[in-house]
Amino acid sequence: MRDAETVTFGGSDLDRAAHLRSDVSALAELRRDPTGTHIVLWQGKPLVEGDEMDSLVRLSHDHPILAECDADALFLGMEKGGPVFGHWLKDYWPEGLDGSELGGFVDTTQQSHPTLRSDQVFAELRMIMTRLTARDAELAATLRAMVEWHRRHGFCACCGEKSEVGQGGWQRSCDACKSQHFPRTDPVVIMLITHGNSVLLGRSPGWPEGMYSLLAGFVEPGETLEAAVRREVMEEAGIKVGRVEYLASQPWAFPASLMTGFRGEALTKEIKLDPAELEDAVWFTREEVAKAFVGQHPTLKPARKGAIAQFLLQKWLSDQLD
């Protein structure tokens, strides 16, 4: 698909400067660089600013909030000639916040910090992702995925001993057994399955009423992406899929997936739902999906704005999948 990388988090040609990650002295010098900028994450939320919360905050290296962040700054790359570092505000908790609102399907709350301006807040990335520039979105998604990996992999998977951060944050090493561990990305297939003028949409338990999306699932070991498409659709909806074609991909840092988008032709149409996988699956016509996109369908709501599912459905509606 010609404009595949226009999907949210699709990339902004960030210079990740991987050759500098192993240069300890160079990284130390970059951390002192007065032209360097720093972005901060708290509870998975990037620090943003603006009336629409549409701009990632870039702090100077001497901002006081950085002293409260995790000691291991993550080197994200070079931007406008200067380094960009990511930080995890790990132990801070706003006074009076009970935390219950942070775990909902959509977290619309914002939190601040005493060292920040009143217009600078931590906001849920899924809520603001379509407002950010391509560069801000890439940086925020990269930092979120990296922080999640470090949070979950503090101990060696080989021997159980504590591991240490290296390579500017892009590696964890175990001194006990000398193992090295690197950030992982889980491949996921998400598929636009069509039959004539209709597309197959499903919903998971707990989703908001009326919300449907494209079927998706994790790729299994020893499996091609195309085989994963056919298997997942058969398992979840009992639909046999024939021809499969790749369309686009999207990094999805919730917590660490790469969504690989495909189109597939259904060879059968009778749905045999697996209730352990889906709450419902329905064939919707092109006209019904078009109404949902403009808020005129009586029951169907569109996929989450900014997600690759919505991106692919939009391209299908406008005949721009090629």
Rank of each mutant, 00 (worst) to 15 (best):
I271A: 06
T37Q: 14
L312W: 00
V189N: 00
I193F: 01
A248W: 00
L143C: 03
T108F: 04
R184W: 06
G166N: 07
K90L: 12
P46I: 12
C69P: 02
D54K: 14
G222L: 13
A216D: 14
Q43T: 04
M129E: 15
E5V: 09
R31G: 04
L201M: 10
V165I: 09
K45A: 12
F155E: 15
A290V: 06
R58L: 06
D175H: 14
G210T: 08
R231F: 02
M234N: 05
Y92A: 07
R230E: 04
F262I: 04
P64M: 04
R16W: 09
E164A: 10
E265F: 06
D33Q: 01
R126I: 06
E79C: 12
F105L: 12
P208N: 04
P94H: 03
G196S: 04
A303C: 05
T6M: 10
P64C: 04
S213Y: 09
Y92L: 09
F9M: 10
L74M: 09
A227F: 00
A4M: 08
L97W: 10
G99P: 04
E49P: 10
R286I: 05
G103D: 10
P34S: 10
R16D: 12
G306K: 13
G261Q: 01
C159W: 07
I39C: 14
G99Y: 08
V241E: 01
V40L: 14
V229H: 00
E236D: 11
C158N: 13
C177I: 08
P221R: 15
E68N: 03
L14D: 08
Q296I: 09
M259C: 02
H38C: 05
L247S: 00
Q250K: 01
I39F: 08
I271N: 06
S112E: 04
F262T: 00
G44R: 12
W42V: 07
G103K: 11
H63E: 05
A134D: 15
V189M: 00
T6Y: 05
V165D: 06
L267R: 08
D119E: 15
P205A: 09
L278F: 06
V40H: 13
E138W: 03
H61W: 09
P275I: 06
G238W: 04
G99E: 10
A28L: 09
K178L: 13
A309Y: 12
E101R: 15
V106K: 12
G264Q: 07
F122M: 01
H19L: 07
G222V: 14
F122C: 01
G196W: 12
E161H: 13
V188S: 00
A216I: 03
L321I: 01
A140Q: 10
V165F: 02
G169H: 07
E79V: 13
F122T: 03
E277V: 12
G169I: 09
L201W: 00
L116R: 15
E79Y: 14
D319N: 12
R184H: 07
A140R: 12
M1F: 03
A266M: 05
V229A: 00
A237H: 01
F311D: 02
D51Y: 11
R2P: 13
K80R: 15
L30Q: 02
D107R: 04
V84I: 10
L59R: 05
K269H: 08
G222F: 13
G44N: 11
H150F: 03
L47Q: 08
C158L: 11
F311M: 07
T6K: 12
L56R: 09
R230V: 05
W93M: 04
